[in-house]
């Protein structure tokens, strides 16, 4: 349902993957965003958790979720002051996107024109391939061919 646009190899600190959350990362590795939907009340949740924040149920199903949407806020990182792995990537844009599925999600935003820094800019969902057949969610502005 939600085929994400492949953007390339992921460069960054390795995702923290363990049995509770592995499906999230594996689905992204296949180009699909999946989140948990509560079997009891139907709330789709982020972040991944073994419990529903709305009703407390521990029963859930993984469902496909649309990742495209509009930029809520985006920043341009000019200097890598945290993990040194980002030094090879600066400057880059990252931010949060109000997806069409109604859930706000964070990620890098690939954009060459700077238009993605504007609130409301339209972006599509993408993924970066990480080792272990995992994937990392990102977003892509329309200027990127």
């Amino acid at each position: 349902m939600t085929d994400l646009r492949p953007v390339g190899e992921y460069i960054g600190p390795a995702p923290v993957v363990h049995p509770d959350n592995e499906n999230y990362w594996k689905a992204l590795g296949r180009g699909t965003l999946q989140l948990q939907r509560c079997s009891s009340c139907g709330t789709v949740r982020f972040p991944v958790a073994p419990v529903c924040y709305h009703c407390g149920s521990q029963d859930d199903d993984w469902v496909d979720v649309a990742a495209g949407g509009s930029v809520s806020a985006a920043i341009r990182v000019e200097r890598a002051t945290g993990d040194s792995v980002w030094a090879s990537q600066v400057p880059f844009i990252a931010g949060q996107v109000d997806t069409s599925s109604g859930i706000r999600l964070p990620g890098r935003i690939f954009c060459e024109c700077g238009g993605a820094l504007e609130h409301g800019a339209t972006v599509e969902g993408g993924y970066l391939a990480a080792p272990g057949d995992y994937g990392v969610l990102c977003f892509v502005h329309g200027c990127v061919k």
Partner: peptide, 17 residues
């Protein structure tokens, strides 16, 4: 970490933005 917004400063600049 995986978004590149991996420091309190970067995250808070998102708040300011």
């Amino acid at each position: 970490a995986v978004t590149g917004v991996d420091t309190p400063g970067a995250a808070t600049s998102l708040v300011a933005k």
